[in-house]
Amino acid sequence: MRIRGFGELEADVMDRIWKREASAATSVRDLYEEMAAERTIAYTTVMSTMDNLHTKGWLSRERDGKAYRYRPTLTREEHSARLMREALDGGGHPDLVLTHFIEQIGTEESESIRQALRRISRRKGAR
């Protein structure tokens, strides 16, 4: 699976971390053991990938003895929203990008957008 904005291994690591409970911190060892059960991979490869994701700002980390425990800095949904924002900003005329996007989505997705706009409007009105 490829997640936009990440390399293949980075996407696999982020996907596995996002699937965990939101408050759960993950060690390199935990993730390595999970990944090694499915494919041939070196511990140092997982460690380097998680360190790179930390350096890029996608993971935060805290010391746990001699090791680190990692957490995502954004949820999967926040990451997706950021990509949507970047697409809207970088795709030419934002109003046309949005129009083309809306033309491509289905009835259920359109209703979800309407509901989200109503929730946001109510929250802003309550301030």
Rank of each mutant, 00 (worst) to 15 (best):
M1Y: 02
R2T: 07
I3S: 03
R4W: 00
G5A: 09
G5M: 12
F6R: 04
G7H: 00
E8N: 14
L9W: 04
L9D: 03
A11K: 09
D15Q: 15
D15R: 15
D15C: 09
R16H: 08
W18S: 04
W18K: 08
R20E: 05
E21W: 09
A22H: 05
A22Q: 08
A24Q: 14
T26L: 11
S27W: 01
V28R: 12
R29N: 09
D30I: 06
L31I: 01
Y32P: 01
E33D: 14
A37M: 12
A37Y: 07
E38I: 04
R39S: 01
I41S: 04
Y43P: 07
T45H: 10
T45F: 03
S48I: 04
S48W: 06
S48N: 14
M50L: 09
D51T: 07
D51G: 02
N52E: 06
T55V: 02
K56P: 04
K56G: 01
G57E: 06
W58H: 15
L59Q: 01
R61Q: 08
R61C: 06
E62G: 06
D64M: 10
D64V: 08
G65L: 12
K66V: 01
K66N: 05
K66L: 04
A67F: 13
Y68Q: 01
R69S: 05
R69M: 07
R69G: 02
Y70R: 09
Y70N: 03
R71H: 05
P72C: 12
T73A: 10
L74F: 01
R76I: 05
E77Y: 07
E77T: 09
E77G: 06
E78V: 03
H79Y: 03
H79G: 01
H79K: 10
L83Q: 15
L83V: 03
M84W: 09
M84D: 08
M84V: 14
R85C: 12
A87T: 02
A87D: 04
L88W: 01
L88H: 02
G92M: 15
P94I: 07
P94V: 07
D95N: 14
D95M: 15
L96N: 11
L98G: 04
L98Q: 10
T99I: 09
H100W: 08
H100S: 11
F101V: 04
I102V: 14
Q104M: 15
Q104H: 13
I105T: 12
I105S: 10
E109S: 13
E109D: 15
S110W: 06
S112F: 00
I113K: 07
Q115P: 08
A116Q: 13
A116K: 15
A116I: 05
R118Y: 05
R118L: 13
R118T: 06
R118P: 03
R119L: 08
I120G: 13
S121I: 02
R122W: 04
R122C: 05
G125T: 07
R127I: 03
